[in-house]
Simulated assay, not measured.
Amino acid sequence: MLFYILTLIVVLIDQGSKWWVRDHMSVGEHRSVFDPYLHFEHYQNTGAAFSSFQGYGKWFAYLAIVVVGVIVYYRIKGALSGIVMDLAAGFLAGGAIGNALDRLIYGKVTDFIVWGSGSGIMNVADIAINAGVVLLVVGMLLRSWCERRSYSFK
């Protein structure tokens, strides 16, 4: 149940924040939040991470659907069980769905979060995907460690 709740929460926060940015900021507009550490800048990305593959965003929407399908498949098989893996899967699926919705509805992804002085621009879905990857690695390491110690980790 944690997986589904977290997925939904990530999608709602991601889509809500993107709606706010599209509704209250012009493309290219900059808003200070905690300068110099964090600011918002409205950007529309028609490609993938780091503005690569511009114009091919719809293909990444289809890839996101496949990724979510793979996550659900491995959850059903029991390979992604336990709280850490549920969190990882929820963040990954929620982030993938959030960006896929943008790509399918608008043909581009709304990015707006800038950390520091130009370390790239992202959105809530991107942060969730990064958190999901970190938790997936942590979960795999914990599971491996527990199996070597003959403990059950679930």
Rank of each mutant, 00 (worst) to 15 (best):
I71T: 03
H42K: 10
K58A: 12
L104R: 06
V124L: 08
D35S: 10
G55N: 10
V27Y: 07
Y62I: 12
P36G: 03
L38M: 05
V72Q: 11
D35E: 14
E41A: 10
S144T: 06
I71G: 00
G47D: 03
I113K: 07
I13S: 02
S117W: 03
R75S: 09
F3P: 02
C146K: 01
A89N: 07
N99L: 05
N99D: 04
K154G: 08
F153N: 01
S152N: 02
F3K: 03
S117R: 08
G82Q: 00
I13T: 15
V133E: 00
A79P: 02
V27N: 08
F50R: 15
K18C: 02
M85R: 03
S117A: 09
V114Q: 12
D102H: 07
H30F: 12
H24N: 15
P36H: 01
S144I: 08
Q44R: 14
E29Y: 10
I5V: 14
L104E: 05
V124C: 07
R103T: 11
A64K: 02
V84M: 11
S152D: 14
L2Y: 05
L141F: 03
V138I: 15
M85G: 05
C146R: 00
R148L: 13
Q15T: 13
F153D: 02
D126S: 11
W145C: 08
F153K: 05
G78Y: 08
G16L: 13
A61S: 15
Y74D: 07
G57F: 00
A61F: 04
A93Y: 02
W20E: 04
S119V: 09
G107I: 10
G82C: 00
L101S: 06
F53P: 04
Y106R: 14
V138S: 02
I129H: 00
W20F: 05
R31M: 09
W115M: 12
S26W: 05
F34N: 11
R22Q: 13
E147P: 05
V33S: 09
S81V: 04
L8K: 03
V109I: 15
Y106V: 06
I121H: 09
V133G: 07
S119D: 11
R75L: 11
G98K: 12
D35K: 00
Y73T: 06
L101Y: 14
F3R: 01
R148Q: 14
A100N: 00
V134T: 14
V114P: 02
F53A: 06
S32H: 10
A64V: 07
G69A: 08
V114E: 09
V124G: 09
K58H: 07
G116D: 10
K77P: 07
L12V: 15
S17C: 13
H39I: 05
L101A: 12
L141M: 04
S17M: 15
G94E: 01
S32L: 11
L2R: 15
A64T: 09
